[in-house]
C-alpha cells in the first residue's frame, strides 16, 4: 500500500501529498526523534521523566494485595523485572482460553478480575496506568515483537483497514497523515509516524500519563470522527496493526510526548 500519488483533492490540507515511505533501509522514526532536545532529555533521564512517578506507583501496586483472593501481582508473578520482561513488547495478544486479543491494560484487568477477584480498574485510572507503566517499563530497550499467532491476523487486518479508511468530518485516514505526511508540520506540530514505542506516555498536553487508546482517541477527535467507545475492540485492532508496523523498533516506556 505504498501508493505513489494521492488524490489532488487533498491539496486543501497538504500542498503536495506524497508517499515517502520506501521499502529497504529502516527509516522508521519513533516519535521521540521528532521531539526537541529538551523533551528527549526529559524522557531519557529517569529522575526527570514524570512518567517514572507512575512507574514507581505501579511498583507499589504490584506488591499490594487486592480482591477477595487477597493476592498481589507479585504473589503470582514474583519479580516483575524477570516475569514481565518483554511482555509489553508482544501485546496485544490472545489470552489462554479466549478468542479475541486484549491489550496490556486489558490483560492486567483480566488478572484483576480472574486472578485477584477484584473489580476492574477503570480505563485511564491512575492505578491502571501505573501498573501498565510498571509492566511496560520492564520491556524498555527491547524490540517490539508481536506474537506469531495466526489467530491475530484477522484482527490486525481489520486494524489496517481502519488505519487506511477515511473518516470523520475532515475525511482523513490515519495513513494520510502518518504515512504520507509524516515529518511535515501541521499547524506547527511535526506529524510523527505514529509508532507505539512509548506507551503509556506522559503527554505534556494531558499533564499526566495516558494510554495508547487515549492517544488514538485524540487523533479521532482531531479529524472530527466519533471516537470508539472506551473499550471498543477497534482500538485493540489498531494497536495490533501499529505494533506490527513498528516491529523491531525499541520500546521506550514511559515515553514523553508533547
Amino acid at each position: 500500500m505504498r501508493a505513489l500519488h494521492f488524490g489532488i483533492g487533498l491539496a486543501i490540507i497538504f500542498a503536495a501529498s506524497w508517499a515517502a515511505a520506501q521499502v529497504g533501509a529502516d527509516k522508521r522514526r519513533s516519535g521521540t526523534q521528532d521531539m526537541g532536545e529538551a523533551l528527549q532529555k526529559m524522557q531519557d533521564d529517569d529522575t526527570a521523566n514524570p512518567g517514572m512517578l507512575f512507574v514507581q506507583l505501579g511498583s507499589q501496586s504490584w506488591a499490594k494485595k487486592a480482591g477477595t483472593a487477597d493476592k498481589s501481582c507479585a504473589d503470582c508473578h514474583g519479580n516483575a523485572g524477570t516475569s514481565m520482561k518483554g511482555v509489553a513488547a508482544r501485546y496485544p495478544a490472545i489470552p489462554k482460553g479466549a478468542e479475541a486479543p486484549v491489550d496490556l491494560d486489558g490483560r492486567i484487568n483480566l488478572c484483576r478480575t480472574e486472578n485477584q477477584k477484584a473489580e476492574r480498574l477503570p480505563p485511564e485510572s491512575r492505578e491502571l496506568l501505573a501498573l501498565e507503566a510498571y509492566v511496560a517499563h520492564q520491556s524498555r530497550g527491547l524490540p517490539i515483537a508481536p506474537p506469531a499467532d495466526p489467530r491475530l491476523d484477522a484482527f490486525r487486518d481489520q486494524g489496517a483497514a481502519i488505519y487506511r479508511a477515511r473518516q470523520g468530518q475532515l475525511n482523513l485516514s490515519c495513513a494520510i497523515c502518518h504515512d504520507d505526511n509524516a515529518g511535515r508540520k501541521l499547524a506547527g506540530v511535526t506529524i510523527p509516524e505514529a509508532h507505539p514505542t512509548g506507551y503509556p506516555i506522559y503527554r505534556l498536553e494531558w499533564q499526566t500519563l495516558g494510554s495508547l487508546k487515549r492517544r488514538l482517541r485524540n487523533c479521532l477527535v482531531g479529524i472530527r470522527a466519533e471516537p470508539y467507545a472506551s473499550e471498543a475492540p477497534e482500538y485493540v485492532m489498531l494497536e495490533l496493526f501499529l505494533m506490527d508496523r513498528a516491529k523491531g523498533m525499541v520500546l521506550e516506556a514511559p515515553g514523553v510526548r508533547p
Partner: peptide, 9 residues
C-alpha cells in the same frame, strides 16, 4: 509556544 494538535474531546 506551539499549540498541540489532536487534542481531547
Amino acid at each position: 509556544v506551539t499549540l498541540a494538535a489532536c487534542l481531547e474531546e
